[in-house]
Design a protein around this nucleic acid. Sequence first.
DNA 1: TAAAACGGAATGAACGTTCATTCTGAGATA
DNA 2: TATCTCAGAATGAACGTTCATTCCGTTTTA
Lengths: 191, 191
Amino acid sequence: MNKPDKRDDILQSALKLLAEQGFHGAPMARIAEHAGVGTGTIYRYFENRDVLILAVHRMIYDELTTSLLAHYPKEQSVKEYFFHIGNCIIDYFIKNSLKSRYNEQFFNSPYGNEMRRNELDKENGQYNLFQELYKKGLEHQIIKTVPMTIFFDLAFAPMVWAVRDHHLGFVALDKALSDTIVSACWDCIKL
Amino acid sequence: MNKPDKRDDILQSALKLLAEQGFHGAPMARIAEHAGVGTGTIYRYFENRDVLILAVHRMIYDELTTSLLAHYPKEQSVKEYFFHIGNCIIDYFIKNSLKSRYNEQFFNSPYGNEMRRNELDKENGQYNLFQELYKKGLEHQIIKTVPMTIFFDLAFAPMVWAVRDHHLGFVALDKALSDTIVSACWDCIKL
DNA sequence: TAAAACGGAATGAACGTTCATTCTGAGATA
DNA sequence: TATCTCAGAATGAACGTTCATTCCGTTTTA
């Protein structure tokens, strides 16, 4: 029995319960129980609740980034990049329902807002696929001239909402419909 | 001092505090204090917390509907209808920051999900501007053939996200940019 | 004056976090 | 090998706080 196992058990349980019950519906005690550890054990791996919540988000972010970079097209048009990213995101969140629900909650909470604010503030130099897409699109005069934030809203908001509707059972998002959505979003941002 | 006044004071205070502090950050006692009434008094007007939260949403919904119906264009093209609705929504939520924040929280909570589910279930016969837009668009073969839910996602998700970004200070949404967004959303849904 | 409205203290349930104690297994000892 | 030692991992009962709701004495209304 080594460290990483338990840490990961806790992370997975937190993901599941927080996604299903909401950030305010899953007490630490229940997360611990589901992970098969004592309540106090959580605090050996995560300083407090906030840190745990951020850690789950970090896990999802890293996984999605990995998924985006696998098969990332090289030396293609901006349009190709966008279609790759769009399809990848929809595919990933359709397949990972819990992570999708978790992300929604995260970005509609003070945690998510603070994170976005920090990212804007510190002009983070870290390589970012999304910012790259925006810059290239503007540079090549392929996309509409709007602030970066608005570009992301136009490009990705419908996808995120559609995935949510899929998981809530309001619509069945198959490959054909996904393609239609990504294509429609392209119509939205292209010049 | 008559009934309606106090009921409305409570409603306004709930709107403000719930929007600013989140659904889990504004205790009944604080709402009461802000409204200038005793804690117990809230329970004379609203059966419990859930009922209060739903009542605030209902107030916003009614107000927005009124705003949409004022100056509603008659006998115009689907495109005109869409631009009217889009501009109206952005305008309303830019001007009513608290109501905008409240609505986001509401629709990203079990309250909002349950409400949408109910609306779909009971095929509600009540006259609905949005459903009308969708039906007319399909009928006249002006918009893309997608399920109604997806239509709304494509048409309105970017607007809602953009307004949120405006209120979070990530972008300044002036008239010109609003027009650009509504126009881009039209590109997204039109055939 | 009887009834309704009101205020805010009281109640009890739920929660995040702590910490004194128990458990475990890898070395040390003989 | 059999036994002992002990660091630190794990535990969960207990604590202090917060909150929705209730209760009841007081004030207003008609």
